[in-house]
Amino acid sequence: MFHSYKMVTGAVAALLVAAGLSTGALGQSLELKIMAPAAPGGGWDQTARAMQAALTESGAVKSAQVVNVPGAGGTVGLAQFVNAKGDGSQLMVNGFVMVGAILTNKAPVTLAQTTPIARLTAENQAIVVPANSPIKNAKDLAEALKADPAKVTWAGGSAGGTDHIMVGLFAKAVGVDPTKINYVPFSGGGEALAAILGGKVTAGVSGYGEFEGQIKAGKLRLIGIAAEKPVPGLDAPTLKDQGIDLAIVNWRSVVAPPGLDEAQTKTLLAAIDKMVKSKQWQETLKAKNWDDAYLSGEAFATFLQNEQVRVAEVLQSIGLVK
């Protein structure tokens, strides 16, 4: 939900690491430019700045610089990025949200034009209801939705974003026409949560982390997380275990410009691999509560392709893309 802050939000911790950049970066001679296609603050910017610190401190590259190109769910940045054809010294942070934004904004460029490098992090998506709701589990929610989709109001992030797509997938999974969902988009971190807590909507969808405190305090009831398998160390039922075939994660990844030769791609893959395995990166993941979802090279390319197909289908079925 935080992506939608138009204003510059919290570059905070990322800037801390950026400010404390170590000078002793040896090893690779790569002088990297990392584009965060968003304003300083949000998730992509934080990822870019965390990468910047980890890449240089682990010695994976000689230097790294973060450039912010905000706008339109990252598509402004993407349009600029694909122009850097054959430039093996650039990376761009992106994520699940961009896949949808490209379609809803009718962007003239697509992620297929870029060279996939690696998926880095992921966040589990969760569905919650207010603590006093009669809905106790995913089955109840599915029944309510089947009974009258209009009466089940969902609060989540921006239209066409991860949360919206997830609700569309939920409807599909339980056999309800996805165009009939009553999804109410909210912008900004707290607004949706406030609406759920105040009982203004039936259910809420967002990253698990955003609900965690409220769930523990007993103000919200967790219906389920949309993970493929139960998450170790997390006392949270998955939707799959409750018989609803829905798995979706909010992932973030990096891609390189189009037209790289094999050597260039290999260099970047190696640098990212070294970064992911560094102590610095692992500590950042822990501090920021990001799940490690490292997947690189061919495997990531296939994953990215599948996600694009899936998102396009969902957006069409909920009527956001024609």
């Binding site: 935080f2 802050y5 204003m7 510059v8 919290g10 603050g41 900004g188 707290g190 949560l193």
Partner: peptide
């Protein structure tokens, strides 16, 4: 922000990140 963890403005969102540190 303090009682519910709801960041309701851009500044509050940054404060939240700050608190978490």
């Amino acid at each position: 922000l303090l009682t519910l963890g709801l960041p309701t403005s851009a500044t509050a969102a940054i404060l939240l990140a700050g608190f978490q540190q």
